[in-house]
C-alpha cells in the first residue's frame, strides 16, 4: 500500500512538473509558534545561498528588518506564496498595500493571540475600495 502511495506521489510530481519542473516555495513570516508549526509541517527550506524561507518575529524584531525580509521574499523567484501573521502585516501595512502583483501571493493568516480581522486584510480593503459611494449613480 505504501509503495502504491509513493508511486502515486511520484506520478503527481512528474505530471505536475510539466510546466515548472522545480515548483516554488511557501514562505512564512510570523511569531515563533506559527513558524515552528509550519516548519514542522514541512514548509521550511534553506537554499544554497543559506537564505531561509521563513522569519521569526518576536517583540524585539525591528520593523525595518521585517520590511527587508518581506521585500526580499517578494523579489525571490522561488517563492510563490507568502504567509504572514496579520499582526505582523499590520506593522508593515504600507509595504503590503503596495504589493499588488498576483504572484507571489501574500496571505494574511491569524496568529495564536490575534484573531483574523477581515477589515484589516489588504486585499479585501482593496476590493472594498471599488464600492465608493460616488461611483454609484
Amino acid at each position: 500500500m505504501a509503495k502504491v502511495k509513493e508511486a502515486m506521489h511520484r506520478l503527481q510530481e512528474n505530471t505536475g512538473a510539466g510546466l515548472d519542473r522545480k515548483g516554488k516555495l511557501l514562505a512564512v513570516i510570523g511569531d515563533e509558534d506559527t513558524c515552528v508549526g509550519f516548519l514542522l509541517g514541512g514548509v521550511g527550506e534553506i537554499n544554497k545561498n543559506r537564505q531561509p524561507n521563513f522569519m521569526v518575529v518576536d517583540k524585539n524584531t525591528a520593523v525595518g528588518e521585517i520590511e527587508d525580509t518581506f521585500k526580499r521574499f517578494i523579489k525571490r523567484d522561488d517563492i510563490d506564496i507568502i504567509l504572514i501573521n496579520q499582526n505582523v502585516a499590520e506593522m508593515i501595512r504600507h509595504v503590503i498595500d503596495s504589493h499588488t502583483q498576483p504572484v507571489p501571493s501574500v496571505l494574511e493568516i491569524p496568529s495564536k493571540d490575534h484573531p483574523y480581522d477581515a477589515s484589516k486584510d489588504s486585499i479585501l480593503r482593496r476590493a472594498r475600495g471599488m464600492f465608493n459611494p460616488e461611483d454609484i449613480h
Binding site: E13, K24, G44, N47, I81, P102
Partner: peptide, 28 residues
C-alpha cells in the same frame, strides 16, 4: 543549508485568462 527541504511545492499555472492558479503539492 541542505539539512532540510520543503515537503511542499507550489505549482503555478496560468489559466485561459492568464490568471495564475496555485496548487500546493505534497512531495516525499
Amino acid at each position: 543549508a541542505g539539512q532540510f527541504e520543503s515537503l511542499f511545492k507550489v505549482q503555478t499555472e496560468l489559466d485561459e485568462e492568464s490568471i495564475p492558479q496555485f496548487d500546493v503539492i505534497n512531495r516525499k
